[in-house]
Design a protein around this nucleic acid. Structure first.
Lengths: 222, 222
DNA sequence: GTCTATAATTTGATAGAC
DNA sequence: GTCTATCAAATTATAGAC
């Protein structure tokens, strides 16, 4: 029953504001979309319920009706972002793939993901930096404890076999992560310094897929 | 005249709270020290005037007496941090030094600076990401416009001379910056993932001075 | 210059009509 | 479910005593 009321409501708004509102999204989805945008862009502290309401084209009261508090709403988005940020990377990190292939896949997948979520790095870095209990708890639940060592073991095995140079596996991993993620966290700086625009930035990151992988691989090749 | 009153005041507080307060710092300096700590750690949005007052061991009213508003106080600290973040790096970038030596100096100086200012990267990345008019204006005033091209010219010259491989100068620069700065911005993540403590993190960054420089240099050597 | 008390503003959260 | 009106709390900023 209410689905028609909502549909009608959206169509009225659509005509009224001459704006495209996807009519088949539930209110909850519209709120989450808006919350994702605002929280990911501004972080918890700088995000305003009013901003989210405006982004979702509704009023603040409705946000509280669906999610009770800013904190609870944030936790949903943080959870999403945390998973998004780590999941794919950690999955590739522990496949049975040969090391060189794996490094190329890691870099490509990571940069592709970040090109679609350009505010994610700064969001994650910030929220992990904040000393929030909730976030510390959630971080400890990540299965990194097992996944990272798996990769390290793989690198150590290659070193013993003599197929790659003797490198510190943890540094290797940090190098890969740094080279992929930093340009996104520092995008405004990059763009100002080098005077490039959004489109040029994205093209540059496409180039970096090969540049980073080559750099890393040449540093471990004998 | 008032310098004695202040000295007396500080000594009283010192005895009263059994706490070491350097008595020869002016009130303004004590406020700036506190503001630097709080703003750099938490960013503008999450920083509270109350936090700064507590850190400086005085009350909020006094902060306003000296700096009028939170915004004005922040601008002083931002200015300081901006200079601190770029100045030394850009100076080294444009010395007459030979390229390989220069890269080693850049990496060492940058990591040394960041070891002493571990919250600086995240602060700068965040504030540059915020769309503040004041910050955009200040960024444009940085002499990067001239300094970066100077370095790029140097690299291009080496390539033409045939002393180094044919690499994209801008990517080379971004690689150096990424490798040095990212671990500090992602310190909480690094520490959680690899289970290391503050002391171990700092030792790791000491190791990275050589690791990063070697990596970069080996990638340009013929 | 420094403090206490208080005003003003912003922001998160709720009540109640429809 | 959604809105308007309102409250409550947090936070910045000022007034005025000492």
């Amino acid at each position: 029953m209410y689905i028609f009321a909502q549909l009608f409501n959206n169509i009225v708004k659509l005509m009224d504001k001459k704006q495209v509102i996807i009519p088949d999204k539930t209110t909850e989805e519209r709120i989450l979309d808006a919350a994702r945008t605002v929280f990911t862009r501004n972080g918890f502290a700088a995000a305003r319920m009013e901003d989210i309401a405006k982004e979702a084209d509704m009023n603040r009261a409705l946000l509280h009706y669906y999610f009770r508090s800013k904190q609870k709403m944030f936790e949903v988005i943080f959870e999403e972002n945390l998973k998004h940020f780590f999941e794919n990377f950690l999955n590739i990190l522990t496949t049975e793939e040969e090391l060189e292939i794996k490094i190329r896949k890691l870099v490509t997948a990571e940069i592709d993901m970040l090109l679609k979520n350009q505010y994610l790095p700064l969001f994650m870095l910030n929220e992990m930096n904040r000393n929030s209990e909730m976030i510390k708890e959630r971080l400890f639940q990540i299965p990194q404890k097992q996944l990272i060592p798996e990769f390290i073991v793989q690198v150590e095995k290659e070193i013993r076999k003599g197929t790659i140079k003797k490198v510190a596996p943890m540094h290797l991993l940090i190098n890969i992560i740094s080279l992929c993620i930093f340009p996104f966290a520092g995008k405004p700086m990059m763009m100002t310094i080098s005077g490039i625009n959004q489109k040029q930035f994205e093209l540059m990151m496409e180039d970096r897929k090969k540049i980073i992988a080559d750099l890393i691989i040449s540093s471990i090749k004998k």
